[in-house]
């Protein structure tokens, strides 16, 4: 099958790759562009480790055709920090010991970022809902929920001030 060119913005930079029309975004990000932030956990849309933002929307890269992302803006965990400064969610995941093996962490952070973008002050139930598509086999979820909650409360407190 002839490869087709795909161009998009990845974490703020213009990138291009040649992809099979059937290639999913995860394969192109990892093997085409060497962005190893998003992980392969199932390839079936059931684990959330490949979560990325496409034009601000939370998407599973394994179920997204790369060719469909032509011209889009894609954000992965690799671009989450502002240069050397960690994103508040990254900081909170560290402080709350919310990562053990670290394999689900990129997807969790991306899902949490999408949640806070659309709902800056989510309830605990809304946080649970926000990460319900992401599987963690190590932590039992509690520290992840606590980390996201701390960022949400901190941001809410900041707005009040």
């Amino acid at each position: 099958m002839a490869k087709v060119p795909v161009q998009f913005r990845l974490n703020g930079s213009d990138r291009a790759a040649f992809a099979d029309p059937a290639d999913n975004l995860l394969t192109v990000l990892r093997r085409g562009l060497n962005d190893f932030g998003p992980k392969y956990g199932c390839g079936q849309g059931t684990c959330g480790t490949c979560s990325v933002l496409v034009d601000g929307e939370l998407r599973l890269a394994c179920l997204t055709l790369a060719a469909s992302c032509e011209g889009a803006s894609i954000e992965t965990v690799s671009g989450m920090a502002d240069g050397p400064n960690l994103h508040p969610l990254q900081q909170a995941f560290m402080e709350h010991f919310a990562a053990q093996c670290g394999f689900c962490t990129p997807g969790m952070l991306t899902a949490a970022k999408a949640l806070l973008a659309r709902n800056p002050n989510p309830s605990r139930d809304e946080i649970i809902d926000g990460i319900a598509g992401n599987i963690c086999r190590c932590t039992g979820y509690e520290p992840i929920i606590a980390a996201i909650e701390s960022v949400a409360r901190g941001a809410a407190a900041g707005q009040r001030r």
């Binding site: 990892r30 093997r31 060497n34 190893f36 932030g37 998003p38 992980k39 392969y40 992965t76 965990v77 690799s78 989450m80 920090a81 960690l86 990254q90 900081q91 995941f93 560290m94 010991f97 990562a99 670290g102 394999f103 962490t105 990129p106 952070l109």
Partner: peptide, 25 residues
């Protein structure tokens, strides 16, 4: 105290086995 591997985990830089690029893979 904080885990040595935490910064890598939250930035996606922790090198798992599949996170290595090879020409001609």
């Amino acid at each position: 105290v904080q885990r040595q591997d935490a910064p890598g985990h939250v930035t996606g830089r922790s090198p798992f086995f599949d996170d290595h690029a090879f020409e001609g893979l």
